[in-house]
């Protein structure tokens, strides 16, 4: 299980390779990459600043990764999340899960990003048309996370 909270960008290929190197029991590796969009709610976004809660962020991501490993027969779990100033097209987050079989890997990967969105203490401040605006939490994110409470995995 690996959790990284960092300002700098990450190399998707290198990060994913590190999960499967020398592990020949792994049959599938699922990943999700979140990116900064240039449009949000119809407004043009020129940049975004991600604030977080140092200490709790790492602990919360570790809790989420541990939960995934308890629910599915996973080999490895990886979460990399950036903070600081980002521009459209920049990578924000990478979630990945590896397993002997694809279903566990794919489901666990969806679980990681859904739970992260409602539990990890990050806040987005968007720069749109000269004004900075804190992004509101979306009800659809809560709904997406809730479905993992209703299914045992």
């Amino acid at each position: 299980m690996t959790v990284k909270v960092q300002r700098e960008d990450f190399d998707i290929g290198a990060e994913l390779d590190s999960l499967t190197e020398g592990r020949h029991g792994v049959g599938g590796l699922a990943s999700f990459v979140g990116l900064v969009r240039d449009i949000h709610g119809g407004a043009e976004v020129s940049a975004m600043t991600l604030e977080h809660y140092p200490g709790m962020t790492e602990r919360e991501l570790e809790r989420i990764a541990t939960e995934a490993k308890e629910r599915w027969p996973l080999d490895e779990v990886l979460i990399v999340h950036r903070y600081g100033r980002l521009e459209p097209g920049d990578r924000i987050v990478l979630c990945a899960a590896s397993s002997a079989h694809r279903h566990a890997a794919l489901e666990a990967c969806a679980f990681l990003i859904d739970w992260l969105k409602t539990k990890a203490p990050f806040w987005k401040l968007e720069a749109t048309g000269g004004a900075d605006k804190w992004v509101d939490a979306r009800e659809s994110d809560d709904e997406a996370a809730k479905r993992w409470r209703e299914t045992s995995g």
Binding site: G34, L50, H52, Y53, G55, M56, R59, E60, H81, I92, V93, I113, L116, K117, T118, K119, A120, P121, F122, W123, K124, W134, V135, D136, A137, D141
Partner: peptide
């Protein structure tokens, strides 16, 4: 709210806590 770096509800105890944080609903990912 988070009490000692764990999410907390309004009825949860803060007695003996060393760090309590307040923040808006999270928007990471």
């Amino acid at each position: 709210c988070a009490v000692d770096q764990e999410h907390a509800q309004p009825g949860d105890s803060v007695r003996g806590a060393s760090e309590v944080a307040f923040f808006p609903p999270v928007t990471g990912g």
